[in-house]
Design a protein around this nucleic acid. Structure first.
Lengths: 324, 324
DNA sequence: CTGAAAGCGCTTACAG
DNA sequence: CTGAAAGCGCTTACAG
């Protein structure tokens, strides 16, 4: 059997409660006792039993990750795994486990999340998408489960972390103007997504008089959609700077154009510098710092868990222009 | 506060132990009592507290997933997430949570896995790679943690689930012969991986006299490696059937050739039919049924957890030829 | 600064 | 078929 707090206490000639206090580094315990107990813990390779600890504290020391319902995306879009990486870093540091809810379909996942919450398997949730009308999110609000959203939600009570997409638009415009471009063409994903429209607004915000702007939005959200756009894009005049406000569409387009004469740079917003196409995409890009998005989401959630009555936070992560 | 087993017992006019027995569907309890108690549980929306239950049973009702140390792969290779999907399906069914160990670098992950095991956060592990010399796997054997490997390991004590890669080679050869090809060219990943060599052996096993075979192995494992192979491949004569024994390499090659005249089919082994390039890859392929690999791995692990003294199992999942 | 005791919410022999 | 009691391994008031 595994060694328990009692075994340690006996060997160290103290009470179990003292050992417990040493574990939590309680300032009431003398340094001498702490040192002695710690030595015994090391000797015996003692590890606290998480279940016992959680039972007392009524905590799970775990958080749940909720992914969007169109979950095919999850398997293709590097965004989710990259954000998860950031979440994981902070979670491990704080002793939290991460539980994924990746069942097929929204119904199954909703059921799973309910189970995680009601059985106290998780203390809080992180949503990898922003949709105020989502049933799982509504459930979390109703049950008062602490949660953090990655994305923007128009509601002052909700904690969220997002890219500063408006700024991300401004930066692109500024850079391209500095590079001497006079014509911009925006190729955009579906305008139902706020990051798409915010990026466009940011670009428009920095347009100077002599810039000519054309926009082609709502062309879809898959690689295939981008791929199919090639013929249209090829018509653009050579002086145009092409800004693709959705990474996956950009990848499809890059795929379509990589073997042809690449007449203009394709500027896009990237989840990570280590994307699958980095070896053929020699264009500058905007790094969305998605790992940092995950980090800040988890930091926010942890803060909520430690401080019940925290005021809701809405944070924006800066993006950065990357020269290639 | 949440409703406990005592609350249910009081309202149902029975003892807590009776409620507990109803939860586990103990046959000693009368149907009448069961029905009454279940009704009260529903009314009160009772959910058992997992921590309390785990504390008694000395179980975590959770399993840990270990990913390979070159973890950049994890973020690009659809294999891992697809296998996870299969694992998840079985895990949810059996009431197990899934904990990921995705920290950066082997050291950090090793530390994390140790913590998961020693703190009893997991009951068992699934390795998404097969390497007998891996320190984490050695640790699991030493500590007698139940685990299942996805991949093949030459050791009779280890439970694993793998594709039948030899058969996967045979099937490709058979199909291409039936299609009338007389020349095969194998473009292979690194031969340190057994699935690569087994697939080749399977192909060789079914070669008939008049087939001419050429092989080009160890060209790497990234998309870029496949992409770079294009010029060499373009030299092949038009009658050749090209078999790529690694999916990622195949994708790089498809990417390189998609805009050119695609003179011969590129046959490869695919993790899933819904891969990123499915819209430009019109070739037949071998479906490795990776979801099923995950399903069987989790089924095996669950069996180990329920039956301590189970004889080790080595299972092989069949692959299937997919016509496009 | 430290210990004895109660309790977290379950399960499981043991009795009856 | 059901209940009372002990116990899983911790933490945390309460005493001293």
């Amino acid at each position: 059997m595994a060694v328990t707090i009692k075994d340690v206490a006996k060997r160290a000639n103290v009470a179990p409660s003292t050992v417990s206090r040493v574990i939590s580094d309680n300032p009431a315990i003398s340094d001498a006792t702490k040192e002695k107990v710690r030595q015994v813990m090391d000797e015996m390779n003692y590890r606290p039993n998480v279940n016992a600890r959680n039972l007392v504290s009524q905590k799970a020391n775990a958080i749940g990750i909720v992914i969007p319902s169109e979950n095919e995306d999850f398997y293709e879009n590097p965004f989710f795994l990259t954000a998860l990486r950031g979440i994981n870093d902070v979670a491990v540091e704080g002793g939290y486990s991460i539980l994924l809810s990746i069942g097929d379909g929204i119904e199954e996942r909703f059921k799973h999340v309910k189970q995680l919450v009601f059985e106290k398997r998780v203390d809080g949730l992180i949503f990898l998408y922003a949709d105020e009308e989502d049933p799982i999110m509504k459930f979390a609000r109703k049950e008062k489960v602490p949660f953090t959203v990655i994305g923007s939600i128009d509601h002052p009570d909700i904690n969220y972390v997002d890219n500063n997409n408006f700024q991300a638009g401004q930066i692109v415009a500024d850079q391209l103007i500095e590079m001497g471009y006079k014509k911009f063409h925006i190729l955009g994903g579906n305008t139902e997504f706020r990051h798409i429209t915010d990026r466009e607004l940011g670009i428009r915000d920095r347009l100077v008089n002599d810039i000519e702007l054309t926009v082609d939005n709502d062309i879809g959200f898959t690689m295939e959609d981008g791929y199919r756009t090639y013929d249209k894009i090829a018509q653009l005049d050579k002086e145009t700077a092409l800004i693709v406000t959705d990474e996956t569409i950009a990848d499809g387009l890059i795929l379509a154009s990589c073997q042809k004469i690449n007449t203009f740079p394709i500027i896009t917003y990237r989840t990570t510098g280590q994307h699958a196409f980095s070896f053929i995409d020699n264009n500058c890009y905007i790094d969305l710092n998605t790992v940092e998005l995950g980090v800040q989401a988890m930091e926010n959630l942890e803060k909520q868990l430690l401080n019940q009555k925290m005021a809701p936070e809405q944070k924006f992560v800066d993006v950065s222009w990357v020269e290639v």
